[in-house]
Computed example of a mutant assay.
Amino acid sequence: MRTIVVTGALGQIGTELVPYLRERYGAEQVIATDVKAAPDAEEAGPYAALDVMDGEAFYEVVQKHRADTIIHLAALLSATAEAKPLFAWQLNMGGLLNALETARQLGCSVFTPSSIAAFGAGVPKLGTPQDAPQRPSTLYGISKVSGELLCDYYYLKYGVDTRGLRLPGLISYAAAPGGGTTDYAVDMYRQAVSSGSYTSYIAEGTYMDMMYMPDALESIVRLMEADPAKLAHRNAYNVSAMSIEPGMIGAAIRKQLPDFRLDYCVDPVRQAIAESWPDALDVSAAEEEWGFRPQYDLGAMTADMLRELRLRLPQVPPVKAG
């Protein structure tokens, strides 16, 4: 990667990926884009307002900056997609098609994230294989499976260098929850610092794969820099760092904040989405083909999350003695 255009740069992943890439490749070599004007973002480096559903505008941005890589993050997340299914399909698939067409015409490589939501009923919940059948029951999941297949098509038919990860829930201190089912974990850490308690919309004992954002960022770069000859599953690698449920996160938080209280008020829509996903993915293909190695477990992630959030959020006032 030399010059990189990032779509959805103001979203959950993009907020941290853009500065990560700029530190690695140079600020002027990473062009951040999102659907709205963002003066603050423009001050940090090259920025362009871009509606990814506008194919002509997409092409013009990539051509203007002579980019060789497109990291396409713009998409509607799981719970929000269920509330707006038609718009989610138009954005998630229309935007990806424009990214791929631009890449085909200009000779770019493309990264786009898939998700654990690409799986559905009928697969093993534990150790879900890399090549397990995919029958998701959500519009978000359907769009992710379709995206994987579309990227495969552009690779096989046109030779576009497409690559992707099936990302688990991503936990980050930099971005607020953004409409994903796994975002309860992010919100729990934030509420632990700001209020001392959290009410989870996901039921106790509901396991889902998670990863701390620094591991996700490193995984994206490592995959994009990998030898293409070794990539047998180039558009859909299972990746995860931990399989956890709300109570485990609460217990990890209480090791540092003993008075933290965790309650439950289950949202049936998001709970149903969570139950349709695997509990734990088999990540051996990513390990073998390009060296996937997450660094953070639950304890290390919790310590870092709380330390960073204490610097960013108002905190629970200390209890006065007596």
Rank of each mutant, 00 (worst) to 15 (best):
M1F: 14
V5D: 06
G11F: 03
T15R: 13
E16K: 09
Y20V: 04
L21M: 03
R24F: 06
A38H: 12
P39L: 03
P39N: 01
D40C: 09
P46H: 01
A49W: 02
F58C: 02
Y59H: 15
E60N: 12
H65E: 13
A75K: 06
L77D: 08
A79T: 10
A81C: 09
A81K: 08
K84Q: 14
G94C: 09
G95Q: 04
T102E: 01
A103Y: 14
A103I: 09
R104N: 05
L106Q: 11
S109A: 14
S109I: 10
T112E: 05
A118V: 11
F119S: 02
V123H: 10
G127N: 09
P133K: 06
P136E: 07
P136C: 08
P136F: 08
S137E: 13
I142L: 14
V145A: 06
E148S: 04
L149D: 14
C151L: 09
D152A: 11
P168H: 14
P177D: 06
G178E: 00
V193M: 00
S200E: 02
A203N: 00
T206L: 00
M213G: 05
E218W: 11
E218H: 13
E218G: 12
V221W: 00
A226L: 08
A232I: 10
R234H: 11
A236C: 08
A236F: 10
M242I: 09
I244R: 05
Q256F: 14
P258R: 02
P258L: 11
L262D: 04
Q271P: 01
A272W: 03
S276T: 09
W277Y: 13
E287I: 13
E287R: 15
R293D: 15
P294L: 15
Q295I: 10
T302I: 10
D304Y: 13
R310L: 05
R312Y: 04
